[in-house]
Every structure is written in C-alpha cells, then in structure tokens.
Computed example of a mutant assay.
Amino acid sequence: MRIAIVDDLKNERTLVQKLASQYFDDRKTLYDVTPHFEEYETGERFLENYIPGKYEIVFLDIYMDKITGIDVAKRIATFDKDCSIIFFTTSDEHQLDGYSVHAIGYIMKPISDHLPAFYTAMDYAASRLLMDQAGITVTTDCGEIYLHYRNIVYIDCIGRTTYFHLTNMDLTVLGKFKDYQPIFLADNRFLECYRNIIINMDYIDRPDNDDFILKSGEKLPISRRKKATVLENHMTYFVKKRGM
C-alpha cells in the first residue's frame, strides 16, 4: 500500500508513519499489507509528484503555508476517486470541507490523543483496499480466469448460459447462475435488480422508472415486485459510499 504524508512538521510526519505502521502490524491477520510511505513538507511538493492512482491513502495537514490541505484534497478528488483522504487539523472549522472531498477521516491534533478516530479511518481505508483486490475465479472454455469484482459490471443468465459483462468484454462462463448468486450477493456492491441479473452498483448512473441506467448508457431492468427494496438497497449503498 502506497501512503503519502503531507505535513509541514517533521515530527508529525514521523508520528503518522509510526502509527500507520503499528496499525497494519496490529491488523496483519486481516490485511496482508506492506505500507510504503512518502513524506512531503508542503502541498506544492506533493502535487509536483502526484499522479492519479499513485497513492491508496493520503494524510493531509489542513493548515500549511500557501496551499492548504483542503486545496490539495480538491485536486486529488477531481482526478482520483479511489484515493482515501485523511485530514489532520487543530480545528474543526473545516469539517464540512472534508465532506465535500469525501474524506474518510478528520482527526484532531495531537493525533496521539485521538487514536480511536485514527484507527477508525484506517479501518475504512483498508477495507476499501480489500474490496478493490477481491474477485472470483471462473471457468471458461479457455480455462480458469481470475476476475476482480471491480471489473465486473453485471452478470446475467440467458437460457442456461451465464454471462459476465466486464468493463472491456462479455465473457461466457461455465457453471449455473444460481451457484454464482450467493457469492456475488455476499459482496455489498452487488445487487440482484431483476431475476437472473446481478449488477455492480458502482456502475449505476441513476435509476429511471423501471430501469437502472448504467454509466455506459446501457439499461438494466428493475424488478417491479421488488422495486422498493432494490431502490432502497441502491440508495443505502450510494449514501455509504459517498460518506454522507
């Protein structure tokens, strides 16, 4: 896991690195993660080296000279929706700004006095990483293939054939739809919106009457009988993902 620490105080950067390392040591039975840290003393220096996807977690001090942590976070949020942003600050006056960039943590200094909040933010960041790595091994006519859940848009069944619709292709897999059903529904990003259709909610743009409109423009039907429950589950997932 690649982690950036942006703070103008060296002792604060050292402390954050120590606490994050201790966190992963404490959680090693849950997460097989080796953290790699990069430190920056200014937001300007960080942005000079930043490219989308480079870091899984960015720790940001809000109060720095010139460009603030909020300004840096806005840049990250514009180009990298998957990066987990955790703020450190001596004041709670910018907490609403933290929500606007979907920060997963807003921790008061001194950090050592707020370790439960630190661990809560780290738990969320680590669980997001675990979701990103999760997947399934399927059998096709060409052999076994490992697919990351994040690349599966939806699965469906036509006749007796099960199809996995990926971001870049459609794949025919061996096995019955009903055998895949409990596996996918155990992951909270997947929703059975219609009989024999399970959708990855990360690819939903919006509901529209009796359909979900995907970000690709494709439409998938919503079960009329289960419509209220389906839409409620979608909204619950959406709200939790946005951190509202």
Rank of each mutant, 00 (worst) to 15 (best):
M108L: 15
T140A: 00
Q95E: 09
I136L: 13
K81S: 04
K10F: 12
I76V: 09
K176H: 12
E44P: 02
I152L: 02
E44H: 10
Y106S: 03
M235N: 09
Y149E: 08
K54G: 08
Y55R: 08
D202C: 12
F184H: 09
F59R: 11
R75H: 12
M131A: 13
G98T: 00
K54I: 05
D26N: 11
Y146G: 00
K81F: 03
V138N: 00
E93M: 01
T34V: 09
N209A: 14
K109A: 05
T236N: 15
H102L: 03
R160M: 05
H148A: 00
S127E: 15
N196R: 10
A103M: 03
V138C: 00
R195L: 06
G175E: 05
V101L: 00
D7R: 06
K227I: 02
D65L: 08
I107L: 12
F212C: 01
P207D: 00
R45A: 13
A228K: 11
E44D: 11
I204K: 00
K28C: 11
P116A: 03
G217H: 12
L19V: 01
I197H: 01
D211H: 01
T42Q: 03
P116T: 08
G43W: 01
K227F: 03
I136D: 10
P35T: 14
K176T: 07
I197Y: 02
S127H: 13
Y146D: 00
I5N: 01
Q17M: 08
V230N: 04
K66R: 15
